[in-house]
Design a protein around this nucleic acid. Structure first.
Lengths: 204, 204
DNA sequence: GATCGATGTGTACATCCGTTCTTATCGGAG
DNA sequence: CTCCGATAAGAACGGATGTACACATCGATC
């Protein structure tokens, strides 16, 4: 349609040019849209608007919506893996370990983004083989980090427990008290009920 | 299915009429579509096709897509609540209780539907207040059932653990062995590590 | 049996979406 | 400096979707 702003010969094209890193910016924008509107609401146009680029730019950098989704999730896993890893960097005692886990569950506004994206990925992976391998790799990686502190078998249990706790914390009106969360996690970290032999064998 | 009702007339209209219970059939069809194609793929036409009714019938019985979604989820919670309740009907011993939980986690093709719908609801509830109250009510109800066997505080823990285990069982390539699942659940059911005093106080 | 509301059925339409295509412009290789 | 590939930008198109609507038909009520 005719824009009322251009009388004659007025090229309204954006002057924007030479935007390196635009590709990853689009991916981050896609993740933003994903958090806000869900997988159903993640469209080319929404992502383009969020990244402040024209529609054609999104379709140029990514072959299709499926590829955009896959690469966005891949970027999420990559970033999340690193962040999760670094969470446990200076951990020396069992109490510090537990404290990190408690913080993980207690959904801060910052953590909410990661949690939502994680569940969005899990659900999408149920119907998409490519995303499924991504989700599995992510799970393995997370459990490997936990396994450094509690052992391989307990790491699986702990991972599953954390997943459930985070989900419930996300949508519960009033989240559980820190003490309750801590008590539950402590129990899961030291399942033997006897002294921490199991744990100590892995460094704590 | 063209019935020979009108010999010469070429009225292609469906002869179908007087279909009580069509409304709930549409809701069940909506849940089927939801499981198969996700929230994004649940459209008026998909649901209509699944329920074998014309498009107009769906828009007649439900004011909009949002109402259809909400009522479908409501029906799911209603049915799931009853099913979950009846799962624990004749439970007399702690071992029976644990066995039911292990079956719950080990995703049979039949349980997969419920699990997928549950997670779909949880994710949708993150962005829809109406669905959020529904999800919260469902969680409360489930925990109330569990609480009859393990007490209120432990029921919350157990519910969260089950949620995580079910999710992982859904998308893990090779699910965990029944023994591993059983061991984890047993530990969660009897968290005290000392005799089953806590449990016994609630009937087992 | 006539009437009327409830329900069933098909169609039209505006909107949005994914994708393709054309054109413009920058940056770097030669 | 020249040229060309890579990238940016906007337009266009076919298809799908939600919704509104117009018409048909059954069943209950009198």
């Amino acid at each position: 349609m005719t824009l009322p702003g251009s009388p004659a010969g007025d090229t309204r094209r954006r002057p924007r040019r030479h935007d390196p890193g635009r590709r990853t910016r689009i991916l981050d924008a896609a993740l933003d849209v994903l958090v806000e509107h869900g997988l159903a609401g993640m469209t080319h146009r929404q992502v383009a608007a969020r990244a402040d680029v024209p529609l054609g730019s999104v379709t140029y950098h990514f072959a299709g919506l499926a590829e955009l989704r896959a690469q966005a999730f891949a970027r999420f896993v990559e970033l999340q893996d690193a962040a999760f890893e670094s969470l446990f960097d200076g951990i020396g005692t069992r109490d510090e370990f537990v404290a990190v886990l408690v913080d993980l569950v207690h959904a801060s506004p910052a953590r909410r983004r990661s949690a939502v994206l994680g569940f969005e990925l899990h659900l999408a992976a149920l119907r998409n083989p490519e995303l499924r391998v991504l989700a599995e790799a992510w799970t393995r990686s997370s459990q490997a980090v936990l396994a450094r502190f509690v052992g391989a078998e307990a790491a699986v249990d702990l991972d599953e427990l954390l997943e459930g706790m985070i989900m419930h914390a996300l949508l519960a009106a009033g989240p559980r008290s820190r003490e309750a969360v801590r008590a539950t996690i402590e129990r899961a970290v030291e399942p033997a009920g006897r002294g921490g032999g199991h744990v100590r064998a892995h460094g704590l």
